[in-house]
Amino acid sequence: MQRKTNRERTETTRARLLEAGRALFVSKGYADTGTPEIVATADLTRGALYHHFPDKQALFAAVVETEAAAVAAEIEQAVPMTLDAVSALLTGGEAYLSVMQQQGRARLLLLDGPSVLGRARMDEIDDAHGNRTLREGLEAAMNAGALKPLPLDALTVALGAMFDRAVLALIDGGDLRDQMAVLGAVIKGLQK
């Protein structure tokens, strides 16, 4: 049996902490999750936790960042490169609504994330992941002449907020078809 390298052990420990943290943050919320519970769930020591993360908030930020990256990757995977720019926006938007319904994602990214990390930090995370995919789609559509030329940053923020509110409506029992009908009408209304 080959022994793991230090890097492999580090990656394994970090992954266990992220997994345990995610599970507890989703089931109990950030405020009701303690570090002793995180390390017990990960079957690690507090020393291992503090070796990788200075505090619980840093672990939470890493969980949120990991989750946001997974959402962006799933959106990108759902949108075929062969679609025209507007169809890609619509398909990506529907993919976002779908992947955000995974257990705990809305809580992590839309509710607890802003409250624990602050709006500015969440904006940085969004800009690197979910809003990045939206921005790229809007920019591609404008460059293709499919959408009216509008201020890209403002448009990304406004549409991103609409998509986030649609996710929260879905979590509260809303209908996906209704949400996509409205979001689709808004996007189509931006066409030239």
Rank of each mutant, 00 (worst) to 15 (best):
57 Q>Y: 00
168 L>K: 08
38 I>E: 06
122 M>I: 01
155 L>A: 13
141 A>Y: 13
161 A>Q: 13
96 Y>K: 15
82 T>G: 04
119 R>L: 14
126 D>A: 15
19 E>C: 07
146 A>G: 09
109 L>K: 00
52 H>V: 01
67 E>T: 14
138 L>W: 04
105 R>Y: 05
77 Q>I: 01
57 Q>S: 05
3 R>T: 04
23 A>Q: 15
168 L>F: 08
74 E>S: 12
77 Q>F: 09
82 T>F: 08
20 A>C: 05
107 R>K: 13
84 D>P: 02
137 G>Y: 10
103 Q>V: 10
6 N>M: 10
187 I>Y: 06
41 T>W: 03
133 T>I: 13
86 V>C: 03
24 L>F: 09
95 A>V: 09
169 A>G: 06
29 G>F: 07
73 A>Y: 07
74 E>W: 02
61 A>N: 06
45 T>I: 01
187 I>V: 14
21 G>D: 10
44 L>R: 09
58 A>E: 07
182 V>Y: 12
45 T>A: 00
85 A>W: 06
121 R>T: 14
134 L>S: 10
37 E>L: 15
118 G>P: 14
134 L>Q: 12
69 A>W: 04
28 K>F: 11
29 G>N: 06
131 N>L: 15
76 E>S: 09
42 A>S: 10
51 H>F: 14
68 A>D: 03
65 E>N: 08
27 S>K: 02
85 A>C: 03
167 V>R: 00
144 A>K: 07
158 A>T: 11
156 T>I: 06
176 L>H: 13
28 K>G: 06
69 A>S: 14
148 K>G: 00
43 D>E: 13
67 E>R: 02
167 V>M: 00
117 L>M: 05
81 M>F: 08
108 L>E: 12
143 N>R: 14
57 Q>C: 02
161 A>P: 02
163 F>G: 04
144 A>T: 03
16 R>F: 09
174 G>E: 11
142 M>V: 13
101 Q>H: 10
135 R>G: 07
39 V>F: 09
35 T>G: 04
39 V>H: 06
41 T>Y: 01
141 A>S: 09
